[in-house]
Amino acid sequence: MAPRRQADIVVVGGISTDFRVQGPRLPKPGERVEGYSFQEQLGGKGAHGAVAVARLGARATLVGRVGMDVRGMSLLEQLEEEGVETRAVARDPGVSTGVAMEMVDESGRAQCLGVTGANRRLSVQDVSSAEERITRADVLLAQLGVPLEAVVAAVHIARAAGAHIVLAPTSVTSLPEELLEAVHVVCLGGAEAAVLTGLDVGDLDSARQAAENMVRRGAGAVVVAAPQGHLLLGNEGELWLPNLPVDWVDTAGAREAFSAAVAVALGEKRSLVDAVRFAHATSALTTMRLGAMSGLPDRDEVESFIARLESQALFAPHASW
Rank of each mutant, 00 (worst) to 15 (best):
M1G: 14
A2W: 08
R4A: 11
R4C: 01
Q6N: 05
S16I: 07
F19L: 15
F19W: 10
R32M: 11
Y36C: 12
G43K: 03
K45W: 07
A58H: 01
R59A: 14
R59V: 12
M68G: 12
D69N: 05
D69S: 06
L76Y: 08
Q78Y: 00
Q78T: 07
E80K: 13
E82A: 15
E82H: 11
E82G: 05
V84H: 03
V89I: 11
G94W: 09
T97F: 06
M101D: 12
M101Q: 14
E106I: 11
S107V: 11
G108A: 08
G108Y: 07
R109D: 14
G114S: 15
V115W: 13
G117H: 07
A118E: 04
A118N: 05
R121H: 11
Q125S: 14
D126S: 02
S128G: 11
S129R: 13
R133A: 13
R136P: 01
A137R: 01
L140I: 10
A142D: 04
Q143H: 05
E149H: 12
V152D: 05
V152Y: 04
A154N: 05
V155H: 00
H156G: 10
I157A: 08
A161Q: 08
A163Q: 02
H164Y: 12
A168P: 04
P169L: 04
T173N: 13
L180I: 06
A182Q: 07
V183Y: 01
V185L: 13
V186H: 00
E192G: 02
A193G: 00
V195S: 13
V201G: 01
D205G: 06
M214R: 04
R216A: 11
R216L: 11
G218Y: 02
V224C: 01
A225L: 09
N235L: 15
W240Q: 01
N243K: 10
D247T: 15
W248T: 13
D250P: 02
T251A: 11
A252R: 09
A252C: 14
A254F: 08
A254K: 01
R255S: 14
E256N: 15
V262H: 04
A263I: 05
E268A: 07
S271M: 02
A275L: 08
T287P: 03
M288R: 13
R289A: 09
M293I: 12
M293A: 15
S294Q: 11
G295D: 03
R299K: 11
L309I: 06
E310F: 04
E310S: 06
Q312L: 14
L314D: 03
L314G: 06
P317G: 10
S320T: 15
S320I: 08
S320M: 11
